[in-house]
Each structure stands twice: as structure tokens, then as C-alpha cells.
Design a protein around this nucleic acid. Sequence first.
DNA 1: GCCGTTCGTTATAAGTTGTAACGCTCGAAA
DNA 2: TTTCGAGCGTTACAACTTATAACGAACGGC
Lengths: 224, 224
Amino acid sequence: MAETDTATPRERYRTQVRAEIKEHAREQIATAGASALSLNAIAKRMGLSGPALYRYYAGRDDLITELVEDAYRSLADTLHAAATPDPDPRALAHALRGWALDDPQRYLLIYGTPVPGYHAPDHVTVIANELMTTLLDACSATLPDGAVTPLDTHLEKHRRWAADHPASPAVLHRALTFWTRLHGVLSLELAGHFTGMGFDPALLFAAELDDLLTGTGNPPTHQQ
Amino acid sequence: MAETDTATPRERYRTQVRAEIKEHAREQIATAGASALSLNAIAKRMGLSGPALYRYYAGRDDLITELVEDAYRSLADTLHAAATPDPDPRALAHALRGWALDDPQRYLLIYGTPVPGYHAPDHVTVIANELMTTLLDACSATLPDGAVTPLDTHLEKHRRWAADHPASPAVLHRALTFWTRLHGVLSLELAGHFTGMGFDPALLFAAELDDLLTGTGNPPTHQQ
DNA sequence: GCCGTTCGTTATAAGTTGTAACGCTCGAAA
DNA sequence: TTTCGAGCGTTACAACTTATAACGAACGGC
């Protein structure tokens, strides 16, 4: 995993302790959410006293930031693996859902309610771009055909986020839609807004995915 | 507003103080998020000492619960007003977006990351049902035509959440889609995941709405 | 006007994050 | 091998937080 070979014993110990801290933090977040993360509790569980952790992380925010970064990294790797060698949107979607359900709090750590003042460091935006690239690759493997919407023309001029990716505005639109629709179902499912409603969220997710891919999955057309 | 007439002076004073507390809590949440809500800070701002607030609210959770309830009530009223007298999905969607942008933290209070252990009281589920009803009403004003999806047949048997509403499975499907797609765009926009990407979220929202209503708004069809 | 309910207070307990100062230990270099 | 410094863990402390307990004062119904 990490380069525990090429380093002084001190550094090896340090990275190992940092990893152990993150491990406890992850499990604590998975059970009680990110807002309930307590450095003191982690220290106590590791058998050492509170302030000791500050040798390894500057503070709570620093630890959370690294967890967010790890989550992004994990998601990017998972989606990249699912889209390799063939960039298949369907595989991508299922990988996304599997990854989210595997650890809901990890998904919410990325896409959930943000702290108003917090600003993500550059590492994260880099990975986010990487994520966007695999999504755009997958969406490029489809032939868009349909009316040009106002959003399409808008995206033609505002494609900074797609940077150097050679994708048509329609593909950009498609990628955004892919993202927002799947997130719409996933986030509500993870937040528990479907519990007690009685239906199976997996089928709703599948229906949205089908509609995304075939265009006739459903969203019943309007008429009035 | 409240029944400040028919009550003893003591009760009038109490409801007024409770309202003032909520007012401060709202503004505090709007600026720093729900997790940063501090009873002590509210008390200090109101010119009284910390524990005094416990005469009015049992604790932080109690206050937040009431704020959540108020938010649900406000959203339900707003959407109901937008769908009256004619249940128009388009008006409903714009009312939803306006309400969300008006106070993002209030939207996230309802649809954002939940506290794992927390369970909403009955009041909230009642209002949630009311909300669902206006959504179903609006979606009933459309004539669905399209292939019957697996989700449709599933919803035919699992329509407990629609209870006594006379809506076809296709309409139920449509309502769910309406909800998840708009939430998908809105939540990502409010969470700031579009900032820095350079495009206008309003156009994406509009595109999704158009597709929802006309069925040809876009999501470019797949082919391969 | 009495008297009890309600309110606001201070004091206290048990948490939290984070800083400061003090030794100990380990490892690298002489 | 011995020394010596960087890094680590400790306790002590400050400034917060939520929440409870106990006390006194004020308000209002009777």
C-alpha cells in the first residue's frame, strides 16, 4: 500500500499511527456520522491521551479533510475500475451504487451537507476532475440524438469543467444528467427518505438508469 | 399567526420567547449550518444566561426538531400554494427551487445528511405525506404514455406511501422521478458541487424539468 | 394580599477542541 | 558506543459546549 519500506523507522511508525487513527475515525463516522467524530474518543480507544493525536493531525478538520480525500480517491478508483477497459455507463452506475451502499456515511462525506465555511483543498478538486473525466468517457460512448436544448448551447460556451475533454455539448449535458439523477435517487435513499414508503429503491435506481440509457425507461411524458 | 389572544399572559410570554429563540436559531443555522447551532450563543444574544433556554426547549435536539418541523411546514405550504388552484408541475418545481435557494440550510435541514441515530417524530411524517399528496396531485394532471417498467409493476403492489391517493402506478413513478431528479440537481447545487464548474445550475434544473414534462427535453438517448 | 407556578440565576458535572510545557525514548551520527 | 537532538506522549490548562441541580425572585390567579 504505502511506501513503508523506503523510510526511516520514525516515518514508518508515523504513517502507521496515522493510518490507525484514520481507521478508527472511519468506523466512528460509519456508525455515528461525520459530525460525531471525536478526537478524544479515538485517542481513548487507541490507549493514549487526547492531545497526543495532535502530533499526527493538526485538528479535527485536518483529519476529516484527509478522510474526504480518501473517499474521493476510493470512489474515483472504483468508478475507473468499473469503466475499464470498456467505458460502460451501466457498469459505472452499478459501481457507484455499490460503493455508496457499502458505506453510506462515506458517500455523504463527499456529497452530503457541507460545512458552510469549509473549502476543499486542491487535492480534492483534482480527484473530482479525474472522476468527471471517467464519467465523460463513459457518456461519450453513446450517440446522443435529440433536440438541442438551451442547456446544450449554454454548455458549449461554459465547458471549463470539462477542460480538455473532447466531448460534444450533448455529451456534457448527458454526463451532468447522469450524475444528478443517480445522485438524486442515491442521496434520498441513503438519507432514509424512502424508508417506510414501502417500495424498493433499487428498482427506482434501475428505472432511472434505464431511462438514462435508452431514453424510454419511463419518465412518463407530459400532456395537458 | 399564533393564538396569542386566547391564553394566559404566562403562556403568551412563553410562546413569544420560544419564537424569539427559534428566530435566532434560524439565522444562526442559515449562516453556519445546523451543526454549528449553539444554545449558549443564542442565550447570550438574547441577553440571558445559558441554562435559561432549557425552560423553553428540552435541549438542542428538541430545538432542531422544531426547526425541521417548521421547515417541512413552510415547504408544504409553499408547494401547496404553487399548485393552487391548478396543480401545475412546472409551477411546483419553480416554487421548490425558489424555496430552496431562499434558504439553502433550511432545505438541507430536511433533505441533507441526517444524524444516524435520529428518528423523525410523527408530526414530520404527517407533513411529508401532505407534501407527497400535492406532488401526486400535480403529477396526476399529466397523461403518462410509455412502456410499463418493472418499477411500475412493483409500485402497483408497493403503494403504501401513496396510501389512499387515486393515482396509477405510472403516476406514482412519475412523482418519484419528479422528486429525485429535481432534488438531484438542487442538492448538488446547494452543496456547492457546481461552483467552479462554470455553468448555470438554473439551466440544468430547467432542462431536467423540461425533460420531465415533455419527455424530449433531452437525456440524450443511448445507442451502442 | 397571599401563595404557588414559572422564570432566570449561579454552581456544577462531564464532555469537546486545542495549546503549552515538561520528560522520555528512540535513532542517527560522530 | 556514546552522545545528543528530534519526535512522541504525558499532564495541566484554557475556552468552549450541553445539560442538571438548587436557589431566589417575580409574576399572576385566586
